[in-house]
Write a protein that binds this DNA or RNA. Sequence first.
DNA 1: CACTTGACCTGTCCGC
DNA 2: TGCGGACAGGTCAAGT
Length: 286
Amino acid sequence: MPELPEVETVRRGLERLVVGHRILGVEVREGKSFLIDERVKSSPVGSTVIAARRRAKVLILDLDDATSLVVHLKMTGQMVVRGAETWGGGHPSDSLVDALPDRSTRVILTLDGDLRLFFNDQRKFGWIRLMPTSAVEEMEFIRRLGPEPLEPDGLDEFKRRVARHPRTSIKAALLDQSVVAGIGNIYADEALWAARVNPSRLVADVSAVKLRQLFESARDVMELSLSLGGSTDRNYVDAEGRRGAYLDFAHVFRRDGDPCHRCGTTIKKTRVAGRGTHYCPHCQRR
DNA sequence: CACTTGACCTGTCCGC
DNA sequence: TGCGGACAGGTCAAGT
């Protein structure tokens, strides 16, 4: 569920809350959730967080010893900060998560300033990887990433990359991180609705005008979502444990059975590219 | 080769 | 109420 707007919201929180703090301890509760590259020392303890970056759906915490903590939240990952600088050790009333740690807590980082950073991940798909900062950009899946919708000059590159997959559905292409980076199931459906493109349509049958509208629609829905703190379907929270509000404004995602905001036709749910797919049968005719 | 499906997990929801 | 099964979705490996 965490897609680009959610990961960016978490990044902003971590930038504010943990950059400048020194790591005092690491508690790994689930070994597969915390991986250490063989090229680095065995622990980040003693290092200071100097930057919080993001590439597509990946979070990167740079440390002052030329290593980085690379984090992928996958579907149910959370990075939640608790401590004196947030709420005196307690948690705010609008937090979705209760007392931490809980049973989904996989890794706990203790930082100076009386802070604790919890990596929670119900389904254990996510991971944190400690590696040399110089090696982050060389990770295979980062090298392959396509342009992000929020990049102002990404359209041409998107068009070039999507054209390499003419026989696949446009929805599958939008979900392919090597075609365009940062889109997941929610924003794929929302962008397709905004651009009035049927999710099952083959890439080869989508006009250049529609491709441009799709890229721009993806940018628009992501900017709106960012302004609302992202989407909370069931699990997502930001670095302070708060949910995002975007789904209150969604046009199709999880709205099957409800009327289309443009034409009133009942929103349908089907399966495209192996994923639940929401669309308006009238606005998004094939 | 291009594309689709299954695996990885756990929690929730639905029908019987 | 209990229980089995479907479903949720990001990414990669395996299959067609």
